[in-house]
């Protein structure tokens, strides 16, 4: 009886602490850090080094959000998630932001109870094959064995591509990217398909990266961006505008090194962004120098990109600013 009562109390206590509250900002402030869901290791996007330091463009976004809230880009903790676990982790309140090269689709936006706060990388699905096969185009892939990750849009895209081209294929879908790479490397599959950025990143893990080539076809649009729970507009705005602030900073020439001196700039757009004019931070529930803190922590979008994604050999391409021939475009701070 006594044991049973203790057990019931423990169970009750667990149920109560497991509550996910609607006001994420308050929760984050109370616990003192942002819990950020990232990948289990994708160079350029979110990858941990030997000593457990996370780097990558997705990681930078989380650091920027933490800096916007606390003025300190290190007040963030990372939860590595498989593609399969990521949405459940977000809906259950285990993480505050999902910044894990996640594709924005209509189903995810409308049916999963999630909101995409923007796009920090425009990607597309590609295919990699061993050069030795002599395959030149995806249209020659009839009968191929294809390796990919479970729980991603890639499974759906590749199925659509083969169905619409009336070609047959087998799909071997692993939970983690490391196993996909290992199985492809062992020859289990003729093709490795995922987002082209990830192909570039995972390729570095192959025994002989130069013995493989990426086919020219891009079979899907994969706008990748940070995700938050639906129903908390304030938190949604904070994440969305932190991302916008980084992109605007690039456009306005505000960098990590000049952000403090730029506060004295004569340009009203820069003044509004950095909080020396207007009340934009407070409207978000933050301090007025929120964006300055974010830029101070990770640099503007271009700086973040150069540090993280560019070393993979991926040029800016469509991810350049709209003013430089790309489609990266942030609404103004005003």
């Amino acid at each position: 009886m006594k044991k049973l009562l203790t057990f019931a109390i423990a169970a009750g206590a667990m149920a109560i602490t497991g509550l996910a509250s609607a006001a994420t900002l308050d929760d984050v402030r109370t616990k003192g850090y942002v819990q950020c869901g990232v990948s289990q290791g994708l160079p350029g996007f979110s990858n941990a080094d030997d000593s457990g330091n996370w780097t990558g463009i997705d990681v930078d976004l989380c650091r920027a959000v933490a800096a916007a809230i606390f003025g300190d880009g290190d007040k963030v903790r990372f939860t590595p998630l498989s593609a399969k676990q990521r949405f459940t982790a977000l809906s259950s309140g285990e993480i505050d932001i999902l910044s894990r090269n996640t594709t924005w689709t209509m189903t995810r936006d409308t049916q999963l109870g999630l909101n995409f706060a923007g796009v920090n990388y425009y990607d597309g699905q590609g295919m990699m094959v061993p050069s030795g096969l002599g395959v030149k185009s995806a249209m020659e892939l009839d009968g191929a064995n294809i390796c990919t990750n479970t729980g991603t849009t890639t499974e759906l895209n590749i199925t659509d591509f083969f169905r619409s081209n009336k070609m047959s294929f087998n799909l071997v879908a692993f939970e983690k990217a490391d196993e996909v790479v290992a199985a492809y490397d062992a020859g289990r599959c003729d093709v490795y398909t995922t987002d082209r950025s990830a192909l570039a990143a995972q390729r570095t893990k192959l025994t002989d990266p130069n013995a493989h080539k990426v086919l020219p076809e891009i079979i899907s649009k994969e706008p990748l961006g940070p995700v938050v729970r639906q129903g908390d507009d304030q938190w949604f705005n904070i994440v969305r505008w932190t991302l916008n602030a980084l992109i605007n900073a690039e456009e306005l020439g505000v960098t990590q090194s000049n952000v403090q001196s730029m506060k004295n700039s004569d340009n009203p757009a820069i003044k509004r962004l950095l909080g020396t004019e207007g009340n934009f931070g407070e409207e978000l529930g933050l301090e007025n120098n929120w964006a300055a803190n974010a830029i101070q922590a990770v640099g503007n979008y271009a700086e973040s990109y150069e540090k993280t994604v560019a070393p993979l050999g991926l040029a800016r391409g469509v991810n350049a600013l709209w003013s430089a021939g790309g489609i990266m475009y942030a609404p103004p701070v005003r």
Partner: peptide
Amino acid sequence: VSIFAGTAMNNVGKE
């Protein structure tokens, strides 16, 4: 767990 709780759950989100 792989196809139903993995792939399918990610597509329809009915956890």
